[in-house]
């Protein structure tokens, strides 16, 4: 898929600083138009918006209390009273799934947000700092990147015990090296550009150069990567919660609902079926959104490596 002819490449962005008031708006407008023409990106944006709204307004949307037990009413298949049926303790599944979106998005957004900030800082240090520091940091990044993600997550969980905070820490430890590598490469290439050199000859401090000139330019491409990594985090949270090492019951998570469903797969298959749907739709939504953004903004940048 190629972007529209009027989508300006992300490379043009440095010009923004010197441009007049209207110029950035034109750049954004062109990107936005290209984005809106792409049905995949729009589908992604709609799905992501729906899940965000669901997560934010969970207490008002959910028809029942997600924790309310009603053992008499357990394993009910979907009906008019309970659209998604009930679980092994008679709790309303739809309510639990809606609250589960809050759990999933909270972990995904906090973890990728923290990783992005750390990745930008470490990446810029590696890219702009002295060579020996760069070498040391790159070695550490590469070492972390070779760790098998899920097994490493299990190791951290053994040490620190399961829970939301451990999950976030694991994601941060795994993602920061990737983001830092990306930011480092961009910082390195930008460092040699004429306007940074000019700024440097005029005596600007490294702090000013990185903060004012480099950081704003590396954030854009990173946002696209983040959007594509959020599904990976959602999958990791659900997977580890499924194994019983993530979000602890009774707090609802799509993963532990799937595990409850797995246990009673033969007698109550509806649990697995309905719990898989939000997981699939949310990961699809964020991936489509990321694809759409990338095609619209068209920075010369590809995601490195395969699905992790």
């Amino acid at each position: 898929m190629s972007s529209g002819p009027d989508a300006l490449p992300g490379v043009a962005e440095p010009a923004r600083e010197e441009a007049t008031e209207e110029a950035p708006f034109v750049v954004r407008g062109a990107g936005l138009r290209a984005f809106l023409r792409d049905p995949m990106g729009v589908t992604g944006a709609v799905l992501v918006a729906a899940f965000l709204l669901m997560a934010i307004f969970a207490p008002w949307i959910a028809p029942y209390d997600p924790m309310a037990l009603n053992v008499m009413n357990k394993f009910q298949p979907p009906s008019w009273q309970h659209w998604a049926g009930t679980d092994q303790l008679g709790r309303d599944l739809l309510s639990r799934l809606i609250w589960g979106s809050r759990t999933a998005l909270y972990i995904a957004l906090v973890a990728t947000g923290v990783s992005a900030v750390l990745g930008i800082v470490l990446g810029m240090i590696a890219g702009y700092g002295p060579r020996w520091l760069d070498a040391v940091l790159v070695l550490i990044f590469d070492s972390f990147s070779t760790l098998p993600m899920i097994l490493f997550a299990l190791a951290v969980i053994t040490v620190l015990g399961p829970g939301k905070e451990t999950l976030i820490l694991v994601v941060v430890l795994i993602s920061v090296p990737y983001y830092a590598r990306l930011i480092r490469a961009q910082t390195l290439s930008m460092r040699e550009s004429d306007y940074i050199q000019a700024e440097r000859t005029m005596g600007a401090s490294a702090f000013r150069i990185l903060g004012v000139h480099v950081a704003p330019n590396v954030v854009g491409p990173l946002l696209i990567v983040l959007s594509m990594d959020i599904p990976v985090v959602i999958m990791l949270e659900a997977g580890l919660s499924y194994l019983g090492f993530g979000v602890r019951p009774p707090e609802p998570s799509w993963g532990n609902i799937l595990n409850d469903g797995y246990v009673s797969l033969r007698s109550a298959p509806h649990m697995v079926i309905v719990a898989g749907i939000p997981l699939v739709l949310s990961t699809l939504g964020f991936t489509f959104l990321g694809e759409g953004l990338r095609d619209a903004l068209d920075p010369r940048f590809r995601r490195f490596g395969g699905p992790r």
């Binding site: 995949m40 599904p231 959602i234 999958m235 659900a238 997977g239 499924y242 799937l258 469903g261 797995y262 797969l265 033969r266 298959p269 697995v272 079926i273 898989g276 997981l279 699939v280 990961t283 699809l284 964020f286 991936t287 489509f288 694809e291 699905p307």
Partner: peptide, 23 residues
């Protein structure tokens, strides 16, 4: 292709287990 990349493998595992083994 994008959809195949995005869908978590263990959801596919659970669904295919339900369809091809259980049902």
């Amino acid at each position: 292709s994008v959809s195949m990349i995005a869908v978590p493998s263990f959801v596919i595992a659970l669904y295919s287990l339900l369809i091809f083994s259980v049902w």
